[in-house]
Amino acid sequence: MTESSMKVEHLTKHYPIKTGFFRTLISKETPVVHAVDDASFQIGAEEIFGLVGESGCGKTTTGKLLLRLIQPTSGKIYFQDKDITNLTPQQMRKMRQKIQVIFQDPYESLNPRMSIYDIISEPVHVLKAARSIEEIKDKVTKVMEDMGLIPPEEFLYRFPHELSGGQRQRVAIARAFILEPQFIVADEPVSMLDASIRSEVAKLILSLVGKFHISFLYITHDIALSRYMCNRIAIMYLGKIVEMGPTDDVIQSPFHPYTEALIAAVPVPDPTVKRTEIVLKGEIPSAVNPPSGCRFHTRCMYAQDTCKKEEPPLVETGKNRYLACYFPLGKE
């Protein structure tokens, strides 16, 4: 885990809100949605890095930024120490061989009119990564075997609607892996699957890390599952990373009040356990006008005057842990 696979510095994405013509004349600044604000992190080789947060906190936007599907407002993205922030679309196209994506919903991410063979082989065609039809066929069958779609012949000429949810997601993973990428953005890859199948696919993803020497950005809202999947996690709130560190450390002893509340909100599959009740009041404020200072202060139980005025920076608090809070828990 010494060398880094993906590194971002001060990554920011603001979406301008479209206003009418006259509005633009009156007001100087167009309002923006602060989707991601000043995010910095590093993902090591063969590491699964989890990005955890509620919907609308900017975790998917971060994933899209790393894929360069959208252009960041500011900040830098390095892939294997190469700055990819300003690559041209042509250069990026070559890069995409190494950076792939798995989407959340295998019911929507697969074209219903393409056979499984066509779906999995499409990236090869697009990037002209094979010389002959035979080579493509070999690649497809091999990657299907790796993903547990066995025997491949049985699936090759079927269509997505003939497969179950778990099989479809395996097809989506196979499509991402056929070009032998080195980095994958997985956007909630198992949240649409049924419980009995979810853990199977989750285990598959875990096994791929060592087998293909690959690293992941794992985007999820399920902090309980991230405990099983990720080496390190970052907790996002309203476009900001509030806490980051090794998964077990963060979950066992969260420092940020938001992390604590997020953990406390997860139901426990054990009726005899009484979890501590920390139910946050209210809901996530708007990302157009995020609260001043610490963005969490409006819902924080421990908020003081400083939190309203100044924004806490994300600083290292010891052994690989980062925190953006003036009054961390457990540290009086």
């Binding site: 009995s196 285990k203 309980a224 599952l225």
Partner: peptide, 24 residues
């Protein structure tokens, strides 16, 4: 038995998640 242990827990020891082969 499988279903009950298929859900990850945020507290307690990290147990292996069970899965069921095949599909409904």
């Amino acid at each position: 038995q499988k279903l009950v242990t298929a859900f990850p827990s945020i507290i307690g020891p990290k147990k292996e998640l069970s899965s069921i082969h095949g599909f409904p």
